[in-house]
Amino acid sequence: MTRILPSETDSLWTLFTAPVIWALHFLACYVLVAVHCQKPGVLGIGFSSVRLIIAATTMAALIGILLSAWLAWRQWGYGRDDPPHDDPTLRDRTLFQGFATLLLSGLSFVAVVLVAMPVLFISECLR
């Protein structure tokens, strides 16, 4: 994997990977449930299948976030250096990016888990 993804991801966009995964997961959960509860016939599945799909989506999202976190951890030099990373060097800029991305991955992980939790407790389209 290290070879597939270059270690010098020189882009601002990698910072947003994990939150984007959160957003896609959130949207998928919302749309699936909205369509299922409004038009049960379209998907032709029961609520238990909806729960399973959400569980699978959640696992996929969490794996994606962990991957983003691992890349960030690597970019952060596996935590060998402590913040604040405020030297005017390419090295500190990269470490800062890695650390900030790692933090965002953590937040996104928690947020994905929180958003998925309702399907543990709710088992039908109650209104």
């Binding site: 919302y30 909205a34 958003v115 309702p118």
Partner: peptide
């Protein structure tokens, strides 16, 4: 649906 509300409540 309450499940939709719960997603937003969690977020």
């Amino acid at each position: 649906p309450q499940i939709s509300l719960a997603f937003f409540s969690a977020a």
